[in-house]
Amino acid sequence: MAALKYAGLDDTDSEDELPPGWEERTTKDGWVYYANHDELKTQWEHPKTGKRRKVAGDLPYGWEQETDEHGQVFFVDHINKRTTYLDPRLAFTVEDAPEKPSARQKYDGNSTAMEILQGRDLTGRVIIVTGANAGIGKFPNES
């Protein structure tokens, strides 16, 4: 394996594998971020793929999330009686790539909310509706 690294080849072909000196961590609300220990920096995007990720679902049965005295999140496995800073849900992350409507997609007065919101997750977002009175009712010249 050392020969592979010396030759500039990784011993795996996984694009999700982190480069040496990097660590994958999660925030309290499940967002994945990446710590570069060599440069003492963090970032939201995976250093190889450039993708943002979020853990999916709840903690496994018997696990609990806590925060240490420095504000860092850690996880307690009550069944096996151990603690770790590695989120057990990291194996089940989902890509945070909101689908953008195509440039040709046009919405009009006949578009339904379901058509517009198809494939979009608005969980945890604040929505402001403006112009809510436009298009409601009849025009004055309609019979």
Score class of each variant (00 low, 15 high):
Met1His: 08
Met1Ile: 05
Ala3Ser: 13
Ala3Arg: 10
Leu4Ile: 01
Tyr6Cys: 12
Tyr6Glu: 15
Ala7Met: 13
Ala7Glu: 14
Gly8Arg: 05
Gly8Glu: 00
Asp10Trp: 07
Asp11Tyr: 08
Thr12Glu: 03
Thr12Lys: 07
Asp16Asn: 09
Glu17His: 07
Trp22Cys: 10
Glu23Ala: 15
Glu24Lys: 15
Thr26Gly: 02
Lys28Cys: 12
Asp29Arg: 12
Gly30Lys: 05
Trp31Met: 13
Tyr34Pro: 03
Ala35Leu: 15
Asn36Arg: 03
His37Pro: 00
His37Arg: 14
His37Asn: 14
Asp38Gln: 12
Glu39Cys: 13
Glu39Ser: 14
Leu40Val: 15
Lys41Met: 15
Thr42Met: 06
Trp44Glu: 08
Lys48Gln: 12
Lys48Asn: 15
Lys48Cys: 09
Thr49Glu: 07
Thr49Pro: 01
Thr49Lys: 03
Lys51Asp: 07
Lys51Tyr: 01
Arg53Tyr: 15
Lys54Glu: 12
Lys54Thr: 08
Val55Cys: 10
Gly57Asp: 11
Asp58Arg: 11
Gly62Tyr: 00
Gly62Met: 05
Gly62Pro: 03
Gln65Trp: 04
His70Gly: 07
His70Asn: 14
Gly71Lys: 06
Gln72Ile: 06
Val73Glu: 10
Val73Gln: 09
Phe74Tyr: 15
Val76Thr: 05
Val76Arg: 12
Val76Pro: 03
Asp77Tyr: 08
Asp77Ala: 04
Asp77Val: 05
Ile79Phe: 06
Asn80Trp: 02
Asn80Ala: 06
Thr83Met: 04
Tyr85Gln: 11
Tyr85Ile: 07
Leu90Ile: 11
Ala91Asn: 11
Glu95His: 00
Pro98Ser: 06
Pro98Trp: 02
Pro98Gly: 10
Glu99Pro: 10
Pro101Cys: 06
Ser102Cys: 11
Ser102Ile: 05
Ser102Tyr: 05
Ala103Lys: 14
Arg104Lys: 14
Lys106Met: 07
Tyr107Lys: 00
Asp108Thr: 02
Gly109Ala: 12
Asn110Phe: 12
Asn110Trp: 07
Ser111Ile: 04
Thr112Phe: 04
Ala113Pro: 00
Ala113Glu: 09
Met114Pro: 00
Glu115Asp: 08
Glu115Ala: 08
Ile116Tyr: 13
Gln118Phe: 04
Gln118Tyr: 08
Gly119Met: 06
Gly119His: 04
Arg120Asp: 03
Asp121Lys: 04
Thr123Val: 01
Thr123Tyr: 08
Gly124Pro: 01
Arg125Met: 13
Arg125Asp: 04
Ile127Ser: 00
Ile128Tyr: 07
Thr130Asp: 14
Thr130Pro: 03
Asn133Met: 14
Asn133Ile: 03
Gly135Ile: 04
Gly135Ser: 03
Gly137Phe: 05
Phe139Pro: 00
Phe139Gly: 13
Pro140Glu: 10
Asn141Thr: 09
